[in-house]
Design a binder for these strands. Sequence first.
DNA 1: ACAAAAGTGTTAGATCTACACCCATGC
DNA 2: GCATGGGTGTAGATCTAACACTTTTGT
Lengths: 245, 245
Amino acid sequence: MTSKLIPNISVDCVVFGFNPEEKLLKLLLIERKLEALEPYDININDFKLTGFHVEKSETLEEAASRVMRDLTGLENIYKKQFKIFGDPNRINKPHDLLWMKSQNLDARSLTVAFSFLIPENAINLEGKMFNPKWFPINNLPKMAFDHDQIAGEAYLDLKKKALHDPMVFELLAEKFTLNELQDLYETILGFELDSRNFRRKVLTKKYIVKLTEKRVGQTKKPSQLFSFDQKIFDAISEENRLINI
Amino acid sequence: MTSKLIPNISVDCVVFGFNPEEKLLKLLLIERKLEALEPYDININDFKLTGFHVEKSETLEEAASRVMRDLTGLENIYKKQFKIFGDPNRINKPHDLLWMKSQNLDARSLTVAFSFLIPENAINLEGKMFNPKWFPINNLPKMAFDHDQIAGEAYLDLKKKALHDPMVFELLAEKFTLNELQDLYETILGFELDSRNFRRKVLTKKYIVKLTEKRVGQTKKPSQLFSFDQKIFDAISEENRLINI
DNA sequence: ACAAAAGTGTTAGATCTACACCCATGC
DNA sequence: GCATGGGTGTAGATCTAACACTTTTGT
């Protein structure tokens, strides 16, 4: 059997979504279903990160983007290679071994985990294959394989990077309010921020651009919209010489 | 042929070493030699990162540590998984394809890059196999495969993390002087620091512990020694709530 | 008019930057 | 006694933390 897949390498996508109304950070998971077909006499029905094996002719980044496109129909979602999981015993539960066998995949399989960041409402889940669902990061269902570990480490990584990496802006719409930005930080970091101090600080940053628009209708008082300018950020951070240990 | 190696997964070690006397950051590389044996009619003689394929029964971390132990005889060197390189065309030069063939390895091979940090003089290179040599990071020789790219990205990663990660202390001996620490930062970051301001800042950090010893003999005036306390650092950084974008 | 979220100012303490000379020792 | 690297202090500017009320709209 000549497959175009590499049998022992997969990508898994840890898809973070932020919902500013609910102030919740979520993960996008899909159902894993294996209905009792012989020779498997166990029903498997839990959740997993979306992922798939890498094709021989594509890069890891291409594989991750392909998997996300298949899931969501979207291209160009922000992503970052995060870690590779390659423990020889990472797949060891009976359910999981059965599943791998049912898919004709190696049990010693390495997976390259990618973190994806997107506003929750940027993905329309209607009518998508695999039945994807959002789960709050602090209330995840039982997950397949070592996906709970992968998700946990990805969240820790995000939490750590949030303090000094602008990747978090990817979780907001292009145009956002300062309250949304503050809610996002509070949600990721897990502590509250003083809104007066937060706003004063943010407003000094040249890469947070005040737009001419306001958002009306959604709340009582119209709120000023802002956007994030990556180019200005990059220029400023190049001249940053502050050691912060 | 049943091998205990996974044919398409390797680890590569980007070994950083700091020399405080020379104020140089270096990489430890080994020679790649393929002498004209039939059917190969080309001499290969350049340098590469130390690396090897992963065994079926070991984790990636174990593989990286094993490779370092084989090279240096040392255990427990600080290491960090850094990135996986899996481009299908990452090995494409005629020399490199010949080399892979001579080693019975897949040309579509993924390598997991690990960064190692150690003081240069902690490794004794005398009589070691593979003829390892230190090269200043800004003056690297011609390297095999995509190892120049891997080394370059690892250096960028170190430069970026140095600003807020205490991993840099791994490049110094257990006991170090503040001038060594300052030289280290200046070398990695590529700009100069004001020694009065640097010292004042460092001395406020509880995890930089002033020892009762001084180093004598090496310079004219004896110099105060310090050590880094990871536990205190972790405790302090957990309560750090400063967003620094 | 009132409910709801948006938005704003001050002060005290801490930290950052810029800048130039004295100190302890080996030779 | 002098050369060498080790080590220090001050003042002005900026940033941080802690604190509560006013503004603008939709209903």
